[in-house]
């Protein structure tokens, strides 16, 4: 029994249909716990007032925006090396989720920045990096839409994802070099002295776990849809041939 068995679409459909209700339930419970805990049962920050509550959506969304791209990179590589269709379909399924997470991070950041920094938008390295990440998601999805042949589309988008990852990283460092920003450092790194205090950290961890589970649920659902779409296409083609 190896992990590659899940690359078989039939096996994937069976396993995911069994796992999906559990993952969905867990996602709803964890997300609600994290957000309700954060929203109703945490104190205000002495400097930021109640705006600190935005952290429970802003940070997890930003984390998922990046992790989603990392996941797409891995699954694209698996497609290029081992030619497993489920892998590349998972990448396709994840992209809109990652793009939405990027948008959430940008919007909540803008809304948060308005009272804190006195501006909706600044060309701060982190904000700029996320805007660039959004452009990469946009290009990746547009390429999927533009190519008719599914295998060519999978190859082209996977190559784009690899090259895009390198350039996204480059942009990150270029942008850091270009402008020093307003944004605070990492909120949750384990050895950081600027660690947020435990009162905020525990609900934040919960909320992050909730976002991970939500992402997993949506990707499973969407990958199942993509597999069905692919099978439908194959059946229609076979019918036309007959």
């Amino acid at each position: 029994m190896s992990i590659w068995e899940y690359a078989n679409p039939k096996k994937f459909m069976e396993t995911s249909s069994w796992a999906l209700p559990w993952v969905t339930g867990l996602a709803v419970v964890t997300l609600l716990t994290g957000l309700v805990w954060g929203f109703f049962f945490t104190p205000d920050d002495y400097r930021q007032g109640s705006t600190v509550k935005i952290i429970y959506i802003h940070v997890p969304a930003a984390m998922m925006a990046i992790n989603c791209w990392a996941m797409m990179l891995v699954t694209s590589l698996i497609w290029l090396v081992r030619r497993h269709h489920v892998s590349v379909l998972a990448a396709k399924a994840a992209a809109p989720v990652g793009m939405t997470m990027t948008l959430i991070a940008l919007f909540t950041g803008a809304i948060w920045g308005q009272p804190m920094w006195g501006t909706w938008w600044a060309w701060d390295p982190r904000l700029t990096s996320f805007l660039i990440l959004f452009l990469f998601y946009l290009g990746y999805l547009a390429l999927w839409e533009a190519v008719d042949d599914p295998d060519s589309a999978a190859d082209l988008t996977s190559v784009l994802c690899l090259v895009g990852s390198v350039f996204a990283l480059l942009s990150r460092y270029a942008v850091l070099f270009w402008n020093q920003g307003l944004h605070q450092g990492a909120s949750l790194s384990l050895d950081s002295k600027e660690h947020v205090s435990d009162v905020f950290a525990y609900p934040l961890w919960t909320s992050m776990a909730g976002f991970v589970l939500l992402f997993l649920t949506l990707v499973l659902l969407r990958t199942r849809t993509e597999i069905r779409a692919r099978r439908l296409r194959a059946l229609e083609a076979r019918e036309r041939m007959a």
């Binding site: 660039i132 480059l170 270029a174």
Partner: peptide, 8 residues
């Protein structure tokens, strides 16, 4: 596709 890659 190309413009984001041009950023750095």
């Amino acid at each position: 596709l190309v413009l984001p890659l041009y950023i750095p």
